[in-house]
Design a protein around this nucleic acid. Structure first.
Lengths: 105, 105
DNA sequence: ACTAATACTATACATTGTGTAGCGAAAACC
DNA sequence: GGTTTTCGCTACACAATGTATAGTATTAGT
């Protein structure tokens, strides 16, 4: 059917990242912390499966949202937001505001 | 392990809605349009399965984000944003801004 | 009356996420 | 310096979720 809805901006790119389960919860912790570690995220975001966390971090790295700092070696690796990732913070803050206002969960 | 990360606001509630696949894309069309219909969304958000669309609309209605206007009957039904749903618009706009800036897709 | 559109539902299948366990390497403890 | 713990994952079998395609009842238009 033909409609008049005018295409404006697209949310798709943001959705492809923030739409993955757990990803906004994970990114939230980067707002306050410079660097975050695997097990921190695992503990703080209760219930995430390590395989899923691993996949999320890999995807975020691939999308240039976070950087993996291979500081010294493999057993203490840290993740930090890129500039592109930092640009997501306003969205996350708006999500917080909304969630606080309409406390659903 | 014990960490010092301070819990701040929570994004979870917003995530539970915007984290579902297709939902932000669907809601985007409500920014410009007062009411939207099933098949409009189906056409505009290319590729969504009607079963999934049906599930999303039901979920959004359940979360009081949209209202189903049973105008006359069953074969022309319209959906419109609630106040709670309208509060999501800033998030969607931020998502657009981010997507436009970092055109990923 | 006939054709097409609307708002879905049904079925079988593909993809994605989960619980639990485990592994090799390094670090902490003693 | 040997043992224990922690860390950052991976593996497996299973559950949940999403998809392609087809179909249905109702209604709108001609």
């Amino acid at each position: 059917m033909a409609t008049e809805l005018k295409p404006i901006g697209c949310v798709k790119a943001a959705t492809e990242i923030l739409g993955d389960k757990w990803t906004p919860q994970l990114l939230r912790f980067f707002i306050n912390e410079e660097v975050v570690r695997f097990c921190q995220l695992q503990d703080l975001v209760g219930g995430i499966n390590p395989r899923t966390l691993s996949a999320r971090l890999a995807s975020l790295e691939e999308h240039d949202i976070i950087t993996k700092l291979s500081t010294s070696n493999s057993t203490r690796c840290e993740y930090t937001l890129t500039e592109k990732g930092k640009d997501l913070i306003p969205i996350l803050q708006d999500m917080q505001t909304w969630s606080d206002k309409h406390q659903v969960a």
